[in-house]
Each structure stands twice: as C-alpha cells, then as structure tokens.
Amino acid sequence: MLHIINKSPLSSVSLDTCLNTAAGGDTLLIEDAVYAATKGNAAEAKLKTAMGKFKLHVLMPDLDARGLGDRLMDGVIAVDYAGFVDLTSNNKTCQSWL
C-alpha cells in the first residue's frame, strides 16, 4: 500500500499517525510534508526509525519549490510526478493521510 502525506510534521499529526498505524510499505511525502525529509528537521529521527518498516519517497518538485532541494536527508528516495504515478501503479491501493 502507498501512503501519501501532505502536511508539515510540525503542524499536523498526519505523519506520526501514518507511521504509527500503517503496516508499512511505500510512503510518499508531497506538498508541505516534504519538510519532514530535510536535514535537521525535528522529524528526521522519526523518519530514520521508520526506514526499517517503510520505503520513504519525497516529491522533488515540491521540495525544490520550497527552497530545500539541497537538504534532502539520506535514505529518502527523490521522485518526480512520473515517479509518483509509478508508486501508485506498483501498489494495489493508496491512502492519502489528509
């Protein structure tokens, strides 16, 4: 299952709830959720821990737009919209943690 998150980890519990509840699988950070995958963000440690259970991806155009394209933390895979489509195709279901 693909989990899509679109909220900053410092303003919403969406990322926490997803990582704590979901059984694992692909996770894609889009829109304001991309902040979670930047070096030095308070969510960095959380994402590192989650890497054992989830395969983490970030939508690069959203990260670039926010001026943080050069701060992507290690271990998170950068994808473009085509990669986003592939992630949805390769998983039977997707869930947006709005």
Binding site: A82, V85, S89
Partner: peptide, 26 residues
C-alpha cells in the same frame, strides 16, 4: 480533488499527477 483552487495546492498536485499519468500511457 477535495480542495478549491489557489487556496490549497491539492488541485495543482492532482492536475500534475493526472498529466504525468496520461504521459505514461495511463
């Protein structure tokens, strides 16, 4: 698409996703 245009990025993201999906032959 659950949000209006301009106020939230949702419609932009949805559109770019749709375009990418079509470009890949879907």
């Amino acid at each position: 698409v659950n949000e209006g245009p301009y106020q939230h990025q949702a419609s932009d993201s949805a559109y770019l996703f749709a375009k990418a999906a079509i470009a890949k032959g879907n």
